[in-house]
Simulated scan of single mutants.
Amino acid sequence: MPEDKPDRTGSLRIAVARRITALRREKGLSLSGLAARAGIGKGTLSELEAGTRNATLETLYALAGALGVPLTGLVGDETGRSVSDGVVDARLLMVRLHDDGGTSEVFWLTIAAGGTRISPPHVPGTTEHLRLVRGSARVGPQGAERAVDAGGSRSWSGDTVHCYGSTEGAEGVLVIETPRGPA
């Protein structure tokens, strides 16, 4: 008889729901207020907080930015945890919480062939660094993307709308440095 495996998607969905709710309340925001800040529907946020809806990577980044936390502030800092939207898959390799309240997150990033992902702005002062290992990609602030080939790297401000795209597919290491968020 096959071994039963825990429903990791369900438990992650519930954990994310609890974190969003707790952070929203801690910041003194209503559902409507947070939804407006993040640019998502109030119904979507309500379903996310109830744990009845899976969040997309784009929605998680929008909420993280609106709440002033890094992505791991919502999905947790369990090494190996992966979030994906079909174009970008980000698997957490490491998180470092700094004494000054900032965070460094290290992800193994995979960009699907033919895909483009537009990422909402993160917390003010956030910086992203991508070092490609395979393939080629166009990354950076929207409208100012630049090509990066295997062995190359690029850094940009993550507190503006930015893009990840690749015609052939790409893999690399993404470091997101997030300063201490607003109180």
Rank of each mutant, 00 (worst) to 15 (best):
T52Y: 11
E49P: 06
L74D: 03
E49W: 01
D77L: 12
G86D: 02
T56V: 11
L67Q: 02
E78V: 15
V95I: 03
G65N: 08
A90T: 00
L71C: 01
L63W: 04
D100H: 09
S82I: 08
V83F: 13
D89E: 14
A66K: 07
V88L: 14
G102Q: 03
T79F: 09
V88C: 12
H98E: 14
R96V: 15
T72P: 04
L92F: 12
A66V: 12
P70Y: 00
E58H: 13
S82D: 00
S84I: 04
L93D: 13
E49S: 07
L93Q: 13
H98V: 01
G68K: 04
L48T: 06
D85I: 06
S82E: 13
V95T: 14
L92E: 02
L93S: 11
L48W: 08
L63D: 02
A62G: 07
G73V: 02
G102C: 03
L97T: 14
N54S: 15
T56W: 06
V69C: 01
G68M: 02
A50V: 10
A62M: 05
V95H: 00
T56Q: 11
V69A: 03
D85L: 08
G73F: 00
V75I: 15
G101H: 10
E78H: 14
D85K: 05
L92R: 09
D100G: 06
E78Y: 08
V83E: 10
G51D: 12
L60T: 02
T52V: 15
H98I: 00
R53Y: 07
L97R: 15
D100I: 01
T52F: 12
V69W: 00
T59A: 12
V75D: 04
T56P: 09
G73S: 05
A90L: 15
A62D: 01
A66I: 12
T56C: 11
L48H: 12
L60Y: 05
T72G: 04
D85S: 08
S82W: 02
T59S: 13
L74H: 03
D99V: 12
A62L: 08
R81K: 14
L74A: 03
L93W: 04
V87A: 10
H98A: 13
M94Y: 10
E78P: 09
T103Y: 00
L67I: 05
E58A: 13
D85A: 08
V87I: 13
L60K: 00
M94C: 08
V69N: 01
L92K: 06
G101Y: 08
L63Q: 04
S82C: 12
T59P: 07
V75K: 06
S84V: 08
V88Y: 01
